[in-house]
Design a protein around this nucleic acid. Structure first.
Length: 580
DNA sequence: GCCGTTTTCGGCCCGACTGTTTTCAGTCG
């Protein structure tokens, strides 16, 4: 039982209690308990086992006891009892947009609907629309929600799969028969979501390695098992495939299984033009054709070199110009995690964050950052306990005081994540915005505007000289909620014209603005700010996801303002408002 | 269910939008 497992159980208890119409504050206690358990810096399960949990704010007696039971026995009778009152499929229903706990409770009580599939047929049979409080439109909206969910059901976000990748690689590399192991596929290419995970090993004893792979502790089901490949399911239905090849084949297999398909096609064409043929095992002479001698190939760079190319980072391999750039020696020198010197857009307990200003500052320094931007929510974001003018002014003052305690090598920037209101005006007046070091402007409400109106709304906001950067441009939540309608190229042009930065929100739920647009933004001269949108100390580390997306968008350290030094970035965030 | 405490129970997060209503409940952020 890991802390993540325990947190998931608390979260499910909260859902089931919503169904039962329990006291909302009790529900909230479980939900916040889940977050505390998940993000606790330390081995909370070990502490729970030893009954050493007292003093953690938000974990009272009841939750401490339940954690102790989970840590010692591996299950929780309270949860088992609660769960037995509903069918297993009931949890799926919470993932459907437009349907909440009251609705789920009603369709279960009156129609016996306890899964997405049953709900779908009940709607199609016209049963849901007839229920009191429902109607044709609501039923149709729920059906849309189901369709979106189904279309994205096999998509996994990076924060879901990254721990699996690390564990599997660790197991494979520890295997005595394995000389090389790598993850391939869209994960290696840095895609924002993945459907499955592809692993590759070099070994002389494939059967042994395959056997080790299918008997890993996280394996729930073995789908296929042969002498050179196997497929398994791990938690949440995530599929992991393994390919075992000889060491001499490894570079070719690594290249082939990394893809993308389009990139591979281009590679094979290049091989053909040299009289060679390329597959997942080798580069070889085409029989009966005169070709130049094939050089020795031990790793991927050798393979690219043989084809007259520089080695493109996996993130670039989408056949969107990387082959041409590799040929001309013009591949970008992609940004790396260690280039980041600070982050903007983070939250504290002042709004909906879980850590205090001081805790966030300490964590940022531990990560080696020179600066930390705080941008708590503004007053219209009630749900997030947004700050009003008085509280924000007090926070600015606290930040200024705290800054006195740091040396010249660290600074907190006082900012705000200001809501862009429906008409494109901002949640604070210009006088207050002028007191801040910087401003992130984001849309958090009225997502259903027509595209032209939404685009204008955002452009009006970034035309404000105090708006330093535009937060999560499309509002999407990966695999859960689509982007609102907005014309991205038009917004990019406006950002270029007004000298506004665009954020790459590094939360694995968002990765917004999407990597596909950064090349265009770069061409227009728009700079990027990679921000974790951290709501806890732990959340600061989400920058790793943002870095992957930035690399996929061809960004270098010159394109990302958080790579600037403290002095440089201080000048930069003041630039736009000075110009006006 | 947690917190703070005038150590025993009251307070804890609010508003817009939608679709259903005929004055409001559910959902979302």
């Amino acid at each position: 039982m890991t802390s993540a497992d325990a947190a998931a159980i608390f979260e499910k208890i909260a859902l089931l209690m919503e169904l039962k119409g329990e006291n909302p504050f009790k529900i909230r206690a479980y939900r916040s308990g889940a977050e505390i358990v998940e993000s606790y810096a330390g081995d909370i399960m070990k502490m729970a086992e030893a009954n050493e949990l007292s003093g953690i704010k938000g974990l009272g007696e009841a939750l401490r006891d339940k954690l102790h039971e989970l840590a010692t026995t591996g299950h929780l009778s309270f949860y088992e009892n609660l769960k037995s009152e509903f069918p297993d499929g009931i949890f799926e229903l919470f993932e459907i947009q437009g349907l909440g706990p009251k609705g789920i409770k009603q369709i279960y009580a009156e129609l016996g609907v306890g899964s997405t599939a049953e709900l779908k047929s009940a709607i199609e049979d016209g049963l849901v629309a007839k229920l009191a409080g429902f109607g044709e439109k609501k039923a149709a909206k729920i059906l849309e929600g189901i369709a979106f969910r189904e279309a994205h059901a096999s998509e996994f976000r990076l924060e879901q799969v990254m721990p699996v990748v690390e564990q599997v690689l660790e197991i494979l590399r520890a295997h005595p028969g394995v000389s090389r192991a790598e993850v391939c596929g869209s994960y290696r290419r840095g895609k924002e979501t993945v459907h499955d995970l592809d692993f590759l090993v070099a070994t002389k004893h494939p059967e042994n390695v395959i056997e080790g792979f299918v008997s890993m502790p996280m394996v729930i089901q073995v789908i296929a098992k042969g002498s050179t490949k196997a497929s398994v399911h791990v938690a949440q239905g995530l599929q992991c495939d393994l390919r075992a090849v000889a060491s001499s084949e490894f570079p070719f297999a690594l290249n082939y299984f990394t893809g993308s398909k389009e990139h591979n096609v281009a590679m094979r064409q290049r091989a053909l033009s040299r009289g060679w043929t390329l597959n997942e095992y080798a580069l070889s002479q085409i029989e009966g054709r005169e070709g130049t001698a094939i050089p020795e190939i031990e790793d991927e760079p050798d393979l690219y070199r043989a084809l007259g190319l520089d080695w493109p980072e996996p993130e670039l391999r989408e056949n969107t110009g990387e082959i041409e750039a590799a040929e001309k020696g013009q591949l970008p020198y992609l940004i790396k995690l260690e280039n980041l010197r600070g982050v903007f857009h983070n939250h504290t307990t002042a709004s909906d964050g879980k850590a205090t200003l001081a805790e966030m500052a300490e964590a940022a320094q531990e990560l080696g950052f020179q600066y930390l931007g705080i941008a708590d929510h503004s007053k219209s974001s009630f749900q997030a306990n947004g700050l009003d003018a008085t509280r924000l002014r007090r926070q600015i003052e606290t930040i200024r005081e705290l800054n006195q305690t740091f040396g010249s090598d660290f600074r907190i920037f006082a900012g705000s994540e200001v809501d862009i209101l429906k008409d494109g005006s901002l949640d604070f007046d210009d006088d207050l915005l002028a007191e801040l070091d910087y401003v992130v402007a984001s849309v958090h409400s009225v997502f259903n505007l027509p595209e032209a109106e939404m685009t204008q709304r955002i452009i009006r906001a970034i035309e404000n000289p105090h708006v330093t950067m535009l937060g999560h441009l499309t509002g999407r939540l990966l695999a859960q909620r689509p982007s609102y309608a907005v014309n991205i190229p038009t917004v990019i042009d406006a950002a270029a014209e007004t000298g506004t930065l665009i954020e790459l929100n590094a939360s694995p739920w968002r990765l917004d603005m999407d990597w596909r647009w950064w090349k265009l933004a770069k061409e227009r001269g728009v700079k990027c700010s990679i921000n974790p949108d951290a709501h806890s100390v732990h959340g600061l580390k989400d920058v790793v996801f943002g870095i992957r997306s930035a690399r996929k968008g061809w960004l270098t350290r010159e394109d990302v303002v958080n790579c600037l030094t403290l002095d440089e970035v201080t000048t930069l965030i003041a630039k736009k408002r000075l110009k006006s």
